[in-house]
């Protein structure tokens, strides 16, 4: 059966198509994962709804509460965005580590998040930035915090008649430090583990942590926040010993699987190592500058 291609002119048409093809339609963003899955017959949609022409899914907008990133922004556009570089450098830094140049040229933030492949680079960072998924269906919209959006292995909270329109992230405090560390055999691979930390220093107590957020990819069926570790870091002085203990604790919050790239035990061990390293890099950045420039 031939797959139809629907090219909506705007978001309303795209949402109408999504409703019409709830059973066997799929939206296509950059296509860098979906077209591979179709080739491998992992999915066989009857219709693709092309999101490329939809203007409402583009742009990076600075708002009073945060930054709203259109789902169709490519990794290339995230890397080139002066606003993101200035405000949340950790996001373009992670986008730079996604797959290869050709894939970054077309692959989008929305596709990356909706595909929810373990080891993807953007989800841990977006989790650590308190990201929200802005979803629309024809009749209404809703917002879902990303830690509730990632529901299972290659699964998300996106309903078959919805489209992910934007990812909203908070402005990190000006003195926060953001770090993303990717552990992979080859840089173009998916991460064996990908660790994102955002550390907000306590302005009153030098060296102390006001808030730490840790996003972990590749070490469970879903990317997740290490919430117990985050709670333990609150108020602590961030030194080597604290970072080491945080790494150990984070490794108890994950649920890794084994695959040909790495065993579950190795992934868990690497969570320990890379959470420690990411926290120490963030601490170093804060000490150097008096702030971290997330």
């Amino acid at each position: 059966m031939e797959c139809k291609l629907i090219r909506p002119a705007d978001l309303d048409q795209a949402l109408a198509a999504r409703e019409e093809y709830t059973d066997d339609g799929l939206p296509i963003a950059g296509g860098q994962s979906l077209l591979v899955m179709m080739r491998n017959r992992l999915v066989s949609p009857g219709a693709l709804i092309d999101l490329e022409p939809v203007e409402a899914l583009r742009g990076i907008e600075v708002q009073s509460t945060g930054i709203s990133i259109g789902a169709m922004n490519t990794c290339r556009q995230l890397i080139a965005s002066p606003v993101l570089r200035e405000e949340v450098g950790v996001l373009p830094a992670a986008a730079r580590q996604v797959s290869s140049t050709a894939v970054r040229n077309l692959g989008t933030i929305g596709g990356n998040v909706c595909h929810n492949e373990p080891g993807a680079d953007l989800p841990p960072v977006l989790l650590a930035l308190n990201g929200q998924a802005v979803l629309r269906r024809r009749t209404h919209g809703r917002e879902v915090p990303l830690d509730a959006f990632f529901t299972g292995y290659f699964e998300t909270a996106l309903e078959p008649d919805e489209i992910l329109c934007r990812i909203d992230i908070e402005h990190p405090p000006a003195n926060a430090a953001g770090v993303y560390l990717k552990h992979a055999i080859s840089p173009e691979d998916l991460a064996i583990v990908g660790i994102a930390v955002v550390v907000v220093p306590d302005a009153q107590r030098p060296g102390a942590v006001a808030e730490a957020r840790i996003g972990i990819g590749g070490a469970a069926p879903v990317p997740l926040r290490a919430t117990r570790t985050e709670a333990a870091l609150k108020g602590a002085v961030l030194d080597e010993k604290t970072a080491r203990a945080a790494g150990e604790m984070a490794s108890t919050e994950v649920d890794p699987g084994s695959d040909p790239h790495a065993s579950a035990g190795y992934r868990r061990r690497m969570v320990t190592v890379f959470v420690r390293r990411a926290l120490m890099q963030a601490a170093g950045r804060i000490e150097e500058n008096g702030h971290g420039a997330a």
Binding site: V36, S100, V103, N105
Partner: peptide, 27 residues
């Protein structure tokens, strides 16, 4: 490979390098 790993299908679209095996011609 036809799965966007090997790059031997690389062509340019509006100047950008892309893997032709993961690009819709209609686009």
């Amino acid at each position: 490979c036809e799965t966007s790993h090997c790059g031997c299908c690389t062509v340019r679209v509006d100047g950008m390098a892309v893997h032709g095996c993961v690009v819709l011609a209609a686009r």
